[in-house]
Design a protein around this nucleic acid. Structure first.
Lengths: 300, 300
DNA sequence: AGGCCTGATAGAAGGGCGCTATCAAGGAAG
DNA sequence: CTTCCTTGATAGCGCCCTTCTATCAGGCCT
């Protein structure tokens, strides 16, 4: 059983297309085609449903999929472990972070780089669910996400800070009363993240506890989009306090505290615990444990 | 990265000897030698320390070892999953059980066979620590062991029964008072398991709670050996009640209850949870959950 | 010194995997 | 209906990698 062939299989499953999968593997289309055929003959079962084009996996293919991922992840980790048994870490560290945690990723990434100069870091903004799925599929080495509201499964975590929500508006826009309660907030013209994102679900859940619901006029999937909307003056928004530092220099923006909602939401680093821990994951956890975040990030 | 080469590496680590490892892999010695060399050159690091003979692993080799196990386990599970995606389970189910649980393994194994006729089962008597280690090294599919006293790490468990200790003696041997307390027991001429076995450690711990210590005249690593000693008449012993059923027909043996020690020790099935669960492990857990043990095994 | 056990090396045979070029089957558009 | 494009399979060939048998070199023991 060659790891190479299993990689073909995984690429094909990702892409749903022979030629594109071949390109992703840096081989020709017939090579990948033959590779899949070899794999299937070695296993004695068809893994791919075809009717003149790719048509999904057979039941056997589905059954095999998690093990295929496990296999290539083990192969990659084996190489990593050999390279970094002694001496510095090398290679690419794949980090996923929810948008709300993006301001903190800078601290984590620079601390990692400082500690392990040989490292390359790739950061992607993902939803908490994507992070969980990609960690399980070994497409990420570590994630930065909420720890408590919908706790990620099969993960080890290191909390970094507690996030609180802030109200943000334009100085010449909607007028915000000096003291507001949650009912006032629900009455404001809001733009918020859409409900696919955990930050929004947490906010909704906390307001539902108080019998309230937010009816945003606009929803978006990025804080940049929200700030762009707020800048127009007609809307205000709710953003994590970790973003407040980034807004510090802006003339047009004004942040206001929201009524207390109790504890903030803990945000932290998670890695997969479904296998012996790889050197990258170990390093990330170690750095996260020793990390001193700048003021503006409330300690947990 | 070829799975084959990694298997060579694992065999070599197990055997500590090139030629024997080669035999175990059904290849010639030069083939294995070259395979290891290939693996090392692909990784760019030496994995094996040699000075005219095998001399252990290098640090890189040690670092790589768990991933190598993970890789071949994933490859094997992949094949298993493909074969058994639909249709009955096949192949060999490797069970490990502590000696104390051997009487129960019959129920488990026959229930597995009944449910999955295509299966072959291999049972080995191991200490609880060996079971834990071999599960982690993917050399066992499931184990039958104590769940509570020294809880196995990285394992999912299904409790089966609670074990209590019994005093066993020969009818014409040492005389046993009708009612005894623990101090009496400590004064009897005893033969027991040695301290490498968890059953003994549990017993010792419970007596230590009462300020007592057992001083067996003979220790052994099997209940058969203990019974052989008891049969001679000079010694008595302490065995799990699950063995009492096996002694039922024996003329020479007499079992007596011991003073109550509170709850029995839970015994159950464990499987590794450090990877997606294989079909064998799933099947064992499912059968264990539905298992009805005969009287003589106290329910948990 | 001789025999052995250890692991490495040499040279040949075989097979597996890679490539380019081409084909067969549908589907969409004119 | 014809034509072209897309999608995946096939053919033919070459190269490299793995494997084998046979042999060698270095220690260790007698």
């Amino acid at each position: 059983m060659q790891t190479r062939l299993v990689e073909y299989f995984l690429a094909l499953e990702r892409e749903g297309h022979f030629a594109r999968a071949a390109a992703q593997c840096n081989v020709s289309q017939p090579t990948l085609s033959a590779g899949i055929a070899t794999l299937e003959s070695q296993l004695g079962k068809r893994l791919i449903r075809r009717d003149r084009k790719y048509a999904g996996l057979t039941p056997e293919g589905e059954a095999v999929l998690p093990w295929a991922r496990q296999l290539v992840a083990a192969a990659e980790a084996l190489g990593q472990a050999a390279e970094t048994a002694r001496g510095p870490l090398k290679g690419e560290l794949r980090l996923g972070a929810i948008p709300a945690a993006m301001p903190a990723i800078g601290c984590l990434a620079t601390a990692m780089l400082e500690r392990h100069p040989g490292l390359n870091i790739s950061v992607r903004a993902l939803t908490s669910r994507q992070i969980e799925r990609e960690l399980a599929a070994f497409e990420l080495d570590a994630g930065l996400t909420y720890l408590d509201f919908e706790p990620p499964a099969h993960a080890l975590s290191v909390p970094l800070y507690a996030e609180r929500a802030m109200l943000v508006s334009a100085v010449d826009g909607v007028s915000i009363p000096a003291v507001i309660d949650w009912a006032d907030v629900a009455g404001l013209p809001l733009c918020l993240l859409h409900q696919g994102m955990q930050n929004r679900r947490i906010l909704d859940a906390r307001l539902a506890d108080r019998g309230l619901a937010l009816r945003p006029l606009v929803t978006a999937d990025s804080y940049v989009a929200l700030l762009g909307l707020v800048q127009q003056g007609r809307l205000c928004s709710i953003i994590p306090d970790s973003h407040a530092a980034l807004l510090d220099g802006l003339r047009w923006a004004r942040t206001a505290p929201l009524p207390d909602m109790g504890e903030g939401s803990r945000v932290g680093v998670i890695v997969s615990d479904s296998a012996p821990m790889g050197p990258l994951a170990q390093a990330v956890l170690a750095v996260a444990r020793g990390l001193r975040l700048p003021p503006g990030f409330a300690p947990v």
